[in-house]
Design a protein around this nucleic acid. Structure first.
Length: 504
DNA sequence: AAAAAAC
């Protein structure tokens, strides 16, 4: 299916300063956990030898059967920290029998986004490949039938997003009555997204005698309340937060006018020769629009956000991982957890409203100890968000200056368009913008620092952006369900369960 | 203020 990357055995969550608690964690080998040979073989095959701090701390606790309250983000090796002990604990129950009754769901892993579910599943598959344990992943936006078929045959480990899981429960294709281990991955994100009612319904279907592992980037009051209700005497595990003090990620902010942002993104990508970059936008429409605009400027791009079909999302992500596109323009659907090997840079086209999302976004780069650049654009009306971010990470961001290469001299820039030579018209920065008047002159304040943005006519009403990549992905064969927001809301009004609750 | 997630 997808071309997944394994979690990185990185140590990059150790901050620039001496990390107080994590530094004390012994740098043991994976051999020290007493994992079964078939699991160790898979680990070795992935090339991992030394556990990360969260793995070193969490694996023994999970193996002991205790509940865990873990503070960690993906990229710290979190996925392996629960996947490996799950496999180990379930191994005695593995059966080569073909009877579905011999393969009840024993471990359930819930994630907030479909892509994250897919990625966690890829890791579980990889670590469990030499065991007789079966696993499957279910999430929305794709055909239910293959999922139902896998569930009917029986799986010990199920990775799921909450909505589709409940759907399977209603259809009686999933029975959660024998679940012994539950993982709530990115729990704070799930609460933010209004998943609390779904989580409660799922939790009520599980046996009381089970082990629960909750992973969250933050321990907010809501998270503590959730843990208080559903965890039993949890062991708290906190490793040094992979935060912005990590010295391997260079963070720069560029102050720009809103209308100059597109040109600035194009300029940053060209100037720094970025071959692979995620560009984060705050809105789905904005992401699609930006992808189209930078494509016009000659940058191979694709958009990924919740209004695109699942096959489009997968295709965009896979193409990006395969290095077939240079810029993945994303909403925060891609902010958490996604593991893209050696991603050199992220750009914040918009500053996130929630400062914590900034940390998640820039956490996509500089993974596995590699260096990375986090470049942010800040318009005058985003200064509050910038201040919030700097407050959260406890230091000011470096201010950068964008100097436009081959910036046209003023006389030339002011020349009417018809007098330009051919060829000069190519490239987005030579195009007329909504800030130019009919004589090709700019109006409004001086905006000499950046190239004018490409034309911003009302192209959001045009046909949705489609990547020119091949359509041979197997997922593309299946008809895609309509997933546009308004229709979903209408469906809810027409008797569907109201799924939206205030997350904050 | 916006994102995500079941048909």
């Amino acid at each position: 299916m997808s071309d997944h990357s394994a979690p990185q055995a990185d140590t990059s969550d150790v901050s620039g300063q001496p990390a107080p608690a994590a530094a004390a964690a012994p740098a043991v080998s994976f051999d020290a956990f007493g994992l079964a040979p078939e699991i160790r073989k898979a680990i070795a095959e992935q090339g991992y030898t030394t556990p990360t701090p969260i793995q070193a701390q969490a694996i023994p606790v999970v193996l002991s059967g205790r509940d865990v309250m873990g503070a960690a983000q993906t990229g710290t090796g979190k996925t392996a920290s629960f996947s490996l002990p799950i496999l180990q604990r379930l191994l005695p129950l593995a059966s080569t029998s073909t009877s579905p009754a011999r393969h009840p769901i024993r471990a359930l892993i819930l994630t907030p986004t479909r892509e994250l579910a897919d990625q966690v599943a890829a890791n579980v598959f990889a670590y469990g490949k030499y065991t007789a344990l079966r696993s499957a992943v279910v999430f929305g936006g794709v055909d239910m039938n293959p999922q139902s078929e896998a569930l009917r045959r029986g799986v010990e480990i199920l990775i799921a997003t909450p909505g589709r899981l409940l759907d399977h429960v209603q259809q009686k294709t999933a029975n959660l009555g024998q679940v012994q281990m539950l993982v709530l991955d990115e729990a704070d994100r799930m609460l933010d997204m209004g998943f609390l009612p779904d989580l409660q319904r799922i939790l009520n279907l599980l046996p009381d005698s089970r082990q629960t592992l909750l992973f969250s980037a933050t321990f907010s009051n809501e998270i503590k309340r959730l843990a208080g209700s559903y965890l039993r005497d949890p062991q708290t595990i906190e490793t040094a937060v992979r935060n912005s003090t990590a010295t391997n990620v260079t963070q720069v902010v560029y102050e720009v006018n809103e209308g100059d942002k597109t040109g600035a993104v194009v300029q940053l990508i060209r100037e720094r020769g970025l071959k692979q970059v995620i560009v984060f936008c705050n809105s789905k429409i904005g992401a699609s629009r930006l992808a189209r605009q930078i494509e016009k400027a000659g940058i191979v791009a694709a958009a990924i956000h919740g209004d695109r079909t699942q096959s489009e999302r997968m295709q965009a992500l896979d193409a990006f991982k395969r290095n077939e596109i240079e810029a993945l323009v994303a909403t925060d659907v891609a902010a958490r957890g996604l593991d893209i090997a050696e991603l050199p840079a992220v750009i914040n086209f918009d500053l996130p409203f929630n400062a914590e999302d900034y940390v998640h976004r820039i956490g996509r780069t500089g993974r596995a100890g590699a260096s990375g650049d986090a470049l942010s654009l800040c318009s005058p009306n985003e200064r509050k968000q910038l201040a919030d971010i700097e407050k959260l990470i406890k230091r000011p961001l470096e201010r950068g200056t964008l100097v436009v290469e081959s910036a046209p001299p003023r006389e030339e820039r002011d020349r009417p368009p018809r007098r330009r030579e051919e060829g000069e018209q190519h490239g987005a920065r030579r195009e007329r913008t909504r800030f130019d008047d009919d004589n090709g002159r700019r109006r409004g304040p001086d905006r000499t620092r950046f190239q004018p943005a490409p034309i911003v006519h009302d192209d959001i009403f045009y046909k949705p952006y489609e990547p020119s990549a091949s359509t041979t992905a197997p997922e593309a064969a299946a008809p895609e369900p309509e997933r546009k927001g308004p229709k979903r809301q209408v469906a809810a009004l027409l008797g569907g369960l109201p799924r939206k609750t205030s997350g904050n």
